[in-house]
Amino acid sequence: MDVAKELLSGTILAGARAIRWLDDGDPRGARTLAEIFPHTGNAHIIGITGPPGAGKSTLVNALISEQRRRGRRVGVIAIDPSSPFTGGAILGDRVRMGKHTLDPDVFIRSIGTRGQAGGLARSTHDACLILDAMGYDLVLVETVGVGQDEIDVVALAHTTVIVGVPGLGDEIQAVKAGLMEAGDLFVINKADRDGYEDTYRQFELMLHLRAESKALSSDDWSPPLLRAVAVKDEGIAEIVDAIDQHKAMLQNTGEFGLRSAQREREQALTLTCTEIMRSIRQSADPAILSAVEKREIDPYSASQLLIKNWQEGRGT
């Protein structure tokens, strides 16, 4: 099977295999990506993030249905945490999306974080490119349940949806720090629950403060605050309307292409840094490290020595 060619024509088996290679760091993944890259840059990448228990998977399930009603082909990347101790993971986001399994125009992939911090998996960006090349109109990226500053999804997505929920109390305080500054759309899910009014007011206040801030506000977009009961399909059409409006704004201002360009540039730098770090760790002189362990040399001086050795070893 010519994986690159097959996935460009939309073959699910091929796309699924390419994502596996990229997730595993198999060199065939990078070769495939090189072939399909010219065919990417079209899909609307939409991040769905929020604290654990906010109902992100259920919301994604409802968003898939609404996007399908509008005739769009949908890719989904659902990320769950891997165990830092065993590397294993239980990836259960599909449980809430079961009704879309047999829809040929919906592709759902579960990915474990495999040691990556920030709310995403290392291969998330690659998986988005594969789904993009397969011709999905949009990719919904569901992050792990996040806390204060795990907002890597913002750099990945064109549009980031922050999902909150009534009754988390202090969680809202946590949300405001990183997430309130980052989102393009705010949704309070489970809005039929006690405490909704309080949560709404808190979100409203945060958004007001954000609008007052020169650094965080924008003339082109003010983030809407929406209510939803995802499990009952309430408020879902309004969310997709707002997502569509955000996309239209991005396209009208040229921001859509700009965000994609920035993302690919950052990815190139990230990959470079990862590779160089690996190379430095591999080539590090054990004698220098051992001297640090014995407190004969301090970490700063040691690092200068290690970098110098590494550069000389490469003939630069």
Binding site: S82, S83, T86, G87, G88, A89, I90, L91, G92, R94, V95, S110, G112
Partner: peptide
Amino acid sequence: REAGMEVIF
């Protein structure tokens, strides 16, 4: 999971 596998449910 304990054995380091990725389990899709």
